[in-house]
Design a protein around this nucleic acid. Sequence first.
RNA 1: CGGGUUGUGGCUCAGCUUGGUAGAGCGCUGCGUUCGGGACGCAGAAGUCGCUGGUUCGAAUCCAGUCAACCCGACCA
Length: 574
Amino acid sequence: MKTFQTMSSLYAPTLKEDPADADLASHRLLLRAGMIRKTAAGLYSYLPLAWRSLEKIEAIIRDEMDTHGAQEVLLPIITPAELWEESGRLDAYGPELMRLSDRHDRDFVLGPTHEETMTDLVRGELRSYKQLPVNLYQIQQKYRDELRPRFGLMRGREFIMKDAYSFDADVEGMKRTFDEMYDAYSGVCDRCGIKALPVAADSGQIGGSSSIEFMALAEAGEASLVFCPDCGYAADEEAATVLISVEDGPETHNDELECVDTPGAHTIAELAALFSVSEAACRKAVALMDGEGRPVVCILPGDHELNEVKASHAFGDYRLMDDDELAQYGLHKGCMGPVGLPEGVACVCDISLKGSLSWLVGANKPECHFLGARPGRDFEPDSWEDLASAKASDACPVCGKPLDAARGIEMGQIFQLGDKYSRSMGATFLDAQGKEQYFQMGCYGIGVTRTLAAVVEQCHDDAGIVWPVSVAPFEVEVVALDTADDLVWPAAQRVADQFVAEGVQVLLDDRKERPGVKFNDADLLGLPYQVVLGKKAVAKGMCEVKDRATGERREVAIDDVAAEVGSAVIARRR
RNA sequence: CGGGUUGUGGCUCAGCUUGGUAGAGCGCUGCGUUCGGGACGCAGAAGUCGCUGGUUCGAAUCCAGUCAACCCGACCA
């Protein structure tokens, strides 16, 4: 028979004080509420309360995936290294991969993601276009040997992920599946009570043509994004292609190139101050070695940074020059520019600068800058590329209005992969004409444990967590204030039983603790409703109901409370 | 991997500068008084001072090495 959980027997050791090594609200509160414990850096144990919430998140994900045409499977976590060699990712993923070998010295990888394994599973089995599309997903632990695990569940070396892989006959089919997954992911965010924004994203290591990230908006988020309040355009800062408004530098006599001594002006801020112009009127130069080991100087609007993702698209596996290399190529830190670059050093300018005809730039000799430098006359860029990081105040590429900036937690990402993996791993089927074709694939990930962290990050106050009903570990906490009282204690048990009968998940605080301890723990655990039974109220046949989110309290008759609060709970489930 | 910081009962920390054999608060156990927002009294249990080596009559404290964790930067669900 179903019964209620008592606090006295629940394994949820709460902490009165903040743990020393937790800064983020989600990390701190999940530890304090006795939901998680750290086993080692980036490795967490999920205690009963956390596991209940995780299972609810998983149930929501399963429901959305199933209703949008996907099927659940479960693949091994340990995958043979050969599969990774085949796709070429053994080296590309590099030190991020957790590796191990068996007693025969065969190499294995703890899966960080499963494109290879899933493609291997279906190749040879799916042979005809008539069998397509197929979309398979699983929920399991993933392993990434992060450079720096941090923020509790936000970035672990082990985490729970839902990952799905779709196989379509053509690009149109792939796009249809992608749109289905977009809807599923929107549903997951919504039902978990998360305020999320889908943003255009870079495909990164996974690869493919088009990608969207689902960002849970939070100041503590690791990702920066820009969005247009007017038309709805939104993008990860890494991927945003925005319109940057560029200012010309100061005018010179007869519009000619003019060299000016600028002692002490080494930063853009100093340069702008010296000439009393905005930073946007200056030009920033960044020297790097491209993937082939060739020296490149990039020229950017003075008020923008080099975007590392865009730079790696343009220059491959590049890195910034160190001081020795700058000296070796005759470049001067703080005074670099496109005019008079040493022989062999390429010049690449940000696309936004095209059209500006008077540049304030470094002169490539110490303590000097040029005014009025004009592309085409004073120098010729080797190429124009999109290199600058987006920021608020840049203009929306769709409607031209100013963008806003925000921070987010990347809780999910969906990719159109095309034939990247099916081609490298030789996964084909026969089309209606009997011709061999590569699968058009997509892949779709949600960080389940990260979603839990994102919920807490968005839903908490000074006293503790404020769970949305849909993912709360329990829905109602019954607080028996005086367990020794011969009216209160039976009443509390009866109320808890009635909640069970209503189909509501209830936690009964039956501990022999003082009221203050129980109230504080109840707020810390943050279940949506608290039903408090105290001596005075119970004597009148009443109890107190507190809504954790609003803090609102009201008296309700003991006989009615389970039905009344129960129906409120059920209405708020999603 | 670079920069910064920290390792002392379960938790939060003091002690280290100036070596002398380990402390507080919370938590835990027992008894009593309390009982609607983290009570109080009394009595207890609990620590190889991260690890290894060195200096010294003597090291938590000084020196060297090493390991681990955390924070800031380069990766990602």
